[in-house]
Design a protein around this nucleic acid. Structure first.
Lengths: 233, 233
DNA sequence: TCGTGTCAGATTGTCTGACAATCAGACCAG
DNA sequence: CTGGTCTGATTGTCAGACAATCTGACACGA
């Protein structure tokens, strides 16, 4: 007699709002990587208590967006090339696992991939904002992980893409080659729909490898201080 | 001129100690699944302040060992069969990805697998304690994930096994079939060393599937109130 | 010049105490 | 039996405090 189990109002606690605000600031590139996040400063900037800020920071740290050094505070995580490689191999594992599972996956999960691709293509054609494009692109990749039908893996994938967005906050190289990306993903889905899982896996592998190198070069060009260019005095 | 970068003393904060103590209590089955973790009670039971307990609980929640319901507090997570399935598919994805990477993996990672297996075999033969056996067994599986050489995936695997240990706190079915487990893992490594990756993958797949079903039956027998045996009044 | 104490300021880690909002259960009215 | 109301318990959030620790500057001596 009770079919209201799906109804639940989003309880937004103060901590949640602080976390969201900080996340937004990070993604929008309002704070550089490496910036210290001082508890007191944040607390009275946002009109909340220090305890609340501490809780919010703990969440960001758990998500990998920030890093805590004992007695030295929390900083916005800086992604070195090694970390980027780590994130990319992890992504590759999750997405390839999903794609490989295509034949056994439930139909809704497969349809989600097609829908996400269509949305991405539409966004690319109608000239959506960079942020929307990125979101649509990430949604496609998330849909691939969704093929594994493990909420924990999807959650991890989500957290990985968050880390990446952090690094690419001001790079947004997505715009210029969105069309190419849509094409590549389209090929992939065609292969899957035709039953060529192995082909799709290899296509995705190439795609992700390319993504990693382009991410690394973007990261190498973006910061003011280039990473591996030390000078020995 | 400075080669001391690897030296670092473990800074153990109060929160860390509280988290460890709670984790230990959970793994040792001292608190049943579903038990509420009251902040005040814990605080003065462990002689720390409520803020500290709150932070510790937030960490446990982030690890999935506990669950927070807004305004209703934190409970020890109860694993329903669906969650077990979720964890197991996630584990399968990670470990199979690692094994599949065997040929390209770095030699240390491969050696870690062999070492872990040897340690497990020794533990099984010398009749180690159940806790030690479990640890050795999990180490083998962790080594498989290590083949992916992504620290983030290893971290996730770690957190997944933690969730499982939570469910199997008092079951410890590992003892009786430890020998069989060692044998199965040995076969797997032999296949890999012989270059038969596909065979190893399928072997591991079977192993994990079997693990899931045995876990589910264990879970179905263990609790006082059997899950899916409702009575309609 | 270089390495070593020392000191002040800033920041974190932790504690104490407080209070409104919310929840669970009892209790009561219809 | 359904629908209110009350009460105690617990959480969410705040404010203020203090010791421990870090950072950077400064003075001192080899």
């Amino acid at each position: 007699m009770n079919d209201f189990e799906t109804l639940r109002l989003a309880h937004s606690s103060t901590v949640d709002r602080v976390v969201e605000e900080l996340r937004r600031a990070l993604f929008d590139g309002e704070v550089e990587a490496g910036t210290p996040l001082r508890e007191i400063a944040l607390a009275d900037a946002m009109g909340v208590s220090r305890s609340t800020v501490r809780e919010a920071l703990a969440i960001l740290v758990a998500e990998g967006l920030a890093t805590r050094e004992p007695n030295r505070g929390v900083h916005v995580t800086e992604l070195d090339p090694e970390a980027v490689h780590d994130v990319c191999t992890a992504r590759a594992v999750l997405e390839i696992a999903g794609v490989r599972r295509w034949p056994e996956a439930a139909e809704p999960a497969r349809q989600a991939c097609r829908d996400a691709l269509r949305a991405f293509a539409e966004a690319a054609e109608t000239g959506a904002s960079p942020a929307e494009l990125t979101a649509a692109h990430l949604a496609v990749h998330r849909a691939f992980v969704g093929l594994t039908e493990s909420s924990r893996l999807v959650a991890l994938a989500e957290s990985l893409t968050a880390e990446i967005r952090l690094a690419l906050a001001k790079v947004d190289r997505i715009r210029r080659n969105a069309g190419e990306q849509v094409h590549s993903h389209g090929i992939l889905l065609d292969l899957l729909d035709r039953g060529d899982v192995a082909g799709a896996v290899s296509e995705l592998g190439h795609h992700l490898e390319h993504a990693e190198t382009s991410m690394l070069t973007a990261l190498d060009l973006a910061p003011d201080v280039p990473g591996p260019g030390r000078i020995d005095p």
